[in-house]
Amino acid sequence: MPDTGLLLYGGAFGLILIGIAGIVLSAHLVRIIFAVALLEAGANLLLLLATWHQGAAAPIIVAGRVPDLMADPVPQALVLTAIVIGVGILALALSLALRVQRAYGTLDMHEVRRHMEQDIADEAGIDMPSSSHAPAAVQTARQESGA
């Protein structure tokens, strides 16, 4: 087992871990979106490495010469697909983030969530259950403006 392989596999799992950590730990929406992109990159790298072989040539025939050992073309095609899917979702996520920022004036997910719960409660015509995330000052300000 060559060391390059270990390094690459370690990198793939590392990217996956960093991505998950970013999603779980950060509160800023744009950071979370980039953490998702990192997680996807890790998954793609792992897929590419699934049948990776040290020293395999690209699976392309140039001037009729067939290489002795060619890389597996399937994961390369799969990763191409997965990357394009990721780009589409990333663009949509950023458009949504733009609108959320414009509506609530913040990208902090705790704040966004509180505003959203408030919106849902207002529309439904029920009181909002007091949230443990909301600072007390904001809640009193809301009550005053509502009164």
């Binding site: 998954a43 996520a93 997910m109 969530r113 959203m116």
Partner: peptide
């Protein structure tokens, strides 16, 4: 196109993309 629906969508998008990346792994 309400603010609440955008926020709900983006939160859903994050959970769903997270899941899809796990499935890909």
């Amino acid at each position: 196109s309400s603010a609440g629906s955008f926020a709900a969508t983006v939160r859903y998008l994050i959970v769903s993309s997270f899941g899809a990346a796990l499935a890909l792994t």
